[in-house]
Amino acid sequence: MLEARLEQASILKKVVDAIKDLVQDCNFDCNDSGIALQAMDNSHVALVSMMLKSDTFSPFRCDRNIALGINLNSFQKVLRCAQNEDILTLKADDSPDVVSLVFESSEQDRISEYDIKLMDIDQEHLGIPDTEYAATITMPSGEFQRICRDLSALSESVAIEAEKNAVKFVCNGDIGNGAISLRNHSSVEKPEQNVNIELSEPVALTFSLKYLVNFCKASGLSGSVKLCLSNEVPLLVEYELASNSYLRFYLAPKIGD
C-alpha cells in the first residue's frame, strides 16, 4: 500500500496547477523511491517529468509499484479543498480503485477526507537519453516567466541564443521585434537574482512561446529555473524542489526546412 505524508499541501497543489493545462490524464507511478510522473502533451511536442522523492514525504511508505491513473482536472478540484498549509496524506491500496487524500490543519482540529476515482491509463513512456548540454542557464524563475510573457505578445516563437557570459531571447513578430539579453550576474546580497551561464559551445535554438508560457506556471515552485540547451535536441526547463525532487519540462525545437 501507499501512504505518503506531505508537510505542506501547497507543493502538490502547485505541481498540479502547473501541469494540468499541458496534460490531462496521467499515471502517478509510486514505488519505494517516491512518486513519479511522465506525460506528453497531445501534440507530442512537450513532455512533463515530475519526481517527488520519498524524502519529500515524511513518512513515506510504498511496498510495491502502484500506478495511480488520475484525471488532473479532478485532482485539482480536490486539491483546491486543501489549505496551502495543511498536512496532506495520500493513501492507496495495492490494487486501488481510488486514491484517498487527507488534509489536516496544523492549527485547527480539522480533518478533511476525499477520494478520487482512478482510471486505467495506457501511457506511452519515453526514454530520455542522458545529455551533456552545451549550455546551462540558471536564472530567476520570475524573470524567465516575464520574458516569455512579454515576447509572446509579439511572436509565436523565441530564439534562445547562448554564448559566452550572455544569453539572448529574440523574437520577430508581425508588429515588430524584441530582444532581451541577460549576462552572468552574481550578488551576495540578492542571490535570488543571480544569472549563471555555463557554456561548452554556443547554442541557438527556436521554441514555441505558447509552451514556454505554459511551463512558467511552475514558477511558484522554485525561485530559480534551469534551462538546458544543445543544438538540435529538446530544451529542458527544470524547477528544482526540496530533497532532490524536481519538475521538468522538455520541449522539441522548431527547425528550418
Partner: peptide, 14 residues
Amino acid sequence: SLKQQKLGQYFYQS
C-alpha cells in the same frame, strides 16, 4: 520557415 519538431524524433519508446 520553421517547422515544429516532435519529441519522438529525439526520445525513444521504452
